[in-house]
Design a protein around this nucleic acid. Structure first.
Lengths: 225, 225
DNA sequence: GCCACGGTTCGGCCTGGACCGAACTTTGCC
DNA sequence: GGCAAAGTTCGGTCCAGGCCGAACCGTGGC
């Protein structure tokens, strides 16, 4: 029992409502400054700074100084995955299809750095049923046909090359309770859709706007099955 | 932000070392009494009882009274999955191949109610590469060939019928950092292997003993790929 | 009925830590 | 250099909650 992983050390930083809110804000995948997080959570700079230090210390966030700003991000996709898992479990226990809460958030949103929500689940399902994704011993992977598809979608050979970070990752969507695509490929696909103006980020929200052109294009490229 | 899931409420019960230890003990999938948990964690009955109440209150555990005993279990596979995810992230950050800590635990152990460790990962990989598992929109599923295989292994039609709880579930192994099989099927396969005396539980540990006969049989039925 | 045992509740002690205002440091801007 | 803004540190207050021993309640065994 001595050498076992210390869960409490990981849970304690997340056990405070203010820090939990910070982490949820950071789930948009962007970098926030300490004061921004303070304002968003209704705390003074002092408190926000202390909370940020605690999250950094636990390895849940990384910081990067730029001039007099300090930008905070989630430390890794693995951390984002943990948060998403917790959100899925902590989510008010259905049926909340009745209360749409924030319909935009349910339809399409950022999950750290990839697409989540109904649209993210649709994309995953589309890729999966067309045989582009396969579950291999090493985790979720791209099939040869999936590889070709991604290239036709504008990704490069280099994008899809093996690397330390997993290319595909299975991420449980907290609103849909189904898988969507994370990992490097999730990030790349999102970036490509943004650069083609199919999706646009909004300020102050994780929700993504689907442009009319994007809606049509997505339905064609990632047809629901 | 108001209607978003409350992570802190989920993290707080896990933020205490004693409660974290309790939850880890319960990862063996068995039911423990309050005093057993108290003894195992070095606390008095009073403290153990308070901790248990807190975990119950958070919905992480369920309790069942039997006579003057109160048996505690993890509330659901989803909870077990969360704990496993946290263990994977909290695990001392490699390379721990050097320190085998507990080799038996690494080779084969219980993860809530299914097989984990190197053997669990091998089993998953074997099923996966032989095309018995497939990733569908609704999550991990059993293919037609996988279905046939399971029946040949002694599972019944009823076992494999659709139900509310997912049949297959992808569970990240904290020691191997790869997937192993959870869900109802994970539980059923483990039960079958136990009933054939391929695996045996040990007292006071999550580690499983692989019998000589089991070792041979597993290599044949679930050949490493 | 009596006792033993599992579990809970209570009171008291004490520590951790959440929060703030204020002072301080660093950086960028002019 | 002077000023403003970002962030940290410090001192102080306050409360949640972790821990225990002791008293208490229910159940089972005799």
């Amino acid at each position: 029992m001595t050498g076992s992983p210390n869960i409490a050390r990981l849970a304690a930083p997340l056990a405070d409502p203010a820090r939990a809110r910070m982490v949820m804000l950071l789930m948009d995948g962007r970098a926030w400054t300490v004061t921004e997080l303070g304002q968003a959570t209704g705390l003074t700079k002092a408190s926000a700074s202390e909370h940020a230090a605690r999250l950094l210390d636990a390895g849940l966030l990384t910081a990067k100084r730029q001039g007099r700003h300090k930008y905070l991000r989630l430390a890794s996709p693995a951390v984002a995955h943990l948060i998403e898992t917790m959100m899925a479990l902590a989510a008010p226990d259905q049926p909340q299809s009745l209360g749409p809460r924030d319909p935009a958030l349910r339809e399409a949103r950022l999950c750290y750095n990839h697409l989540a929500g109904a649209l993210g689940v649709q994309l995953y399902a589309s890729l999966s049923t067309r045989g582009f994704l396969a579950h291999t011993p090493g985790g979720l992977g791209l099939t040869a046909r999936g590889h070709a598809f991604c290239q036709s979608f504008g990704l490069t050979e280099a994008d899809l090359a093996p690397a330390r970070a997993p290319l595909c990752r299975d991420c449980l969507d907290w609103s849909e309770r189904q898988s969507h695509l994370g990992g490097r490929l999730g990030r790349l696909l999102l970036a490509r859709m943004e650069s083609q103006d199919w999706l646009r980020r909004r300020d102050g929200s994780r929700a993504l706007t689907v442009t009319p052109v994007g809606r049509a294009a997505i339905a064609q490229v990632f047809p629901p099955c």
